[in-house]
Simulated assay, not measured.
Amino acid sequence: MGKKTQRSLLLLLFLSGLVHCSAALVFWTAVVEINYFISPNKTVDKDCECGIFGRNSPLAQAAGFVVIPRGDPKGCGPDPVYNVSGLPWIALVKRGNCTFSQKINAAKRQGASAVVVYNVDGSGNGTAHMAHSDALEIVSIMIGNIQGMEIASLVRNGTEVRMIIDAGSPHGPWMDTYWLYFMSIAFFIVTAASVAYFLFISANRLYNMRMHRRAERRLKSEAKKAIGRLRVRTLKRDDEETASESHMCAVCIESYKAGEVVTVLTCDHIFHKACIEPWLLEKRTCPMCKCDILKALGVEVDEKDSMSQAAPQEVTVITVAGGEAMYEVPLTDPLNFDPERQEHHYDNGAFEGEAARGQ
Rank of each mutant, 00 (worst) to 15 (best):
R7Q: 13
S22M: 11
A24M: 13
V26L: 11
V31I: 12
E33H: 15
I34W: 04
V44C: 01
D47G: 03
D47H: 12
C50A: 10
G54K: 12
N56Y: 12
P58Q: 09
L59D: 00
A62V: 03
A62K: 05
F65C: 06
K74F: 03
G77T: 12
P78H: 04
P80V: 05
P80T: 04
P80R: 08
P80E: 08
N105W: 01
G126Y: 11
H129E: 05
M130T: 01
A131W: 00
A135M: 06
E137I: 00
I143D: 07
N145C: 12
I146A: 09
I146W: 03
Q147A: 10
I151Y: 05
L154A: 05
N157E: 11
T159D: 02
V161L: 05
R162N: 02
I164T: 07
G168L: 15
S169E: 15
Y178C: 00
L180S: 00
F187A: 15
T191W: 06
L199R: 14
L199S: 08
I201G: 00
I201A: 11
R205C: 05
L206Q: 14
E216L: 14
S221D: 09
A223K: 12
K225H: 10
D239I: 07
H247K: 01
I253R: 12
G259H: 04
G259I: 09
V264T: 09
L265C: 01
I276P: 01
I276N: 02
I276H: 03
L281K: 06
L281T: 03
R284W: 07
T285K: 07
P287S: 09
C289H: 02
C291G: 10
V299D: 07
E300M: 09
S308N: 07
A311H: 11
E314Q: 14
V315W: 06
A321I: 11
E324S: 12
E328P: 00
E343Y: 01
H345Q: 08
E352M: 04
G353W: 03
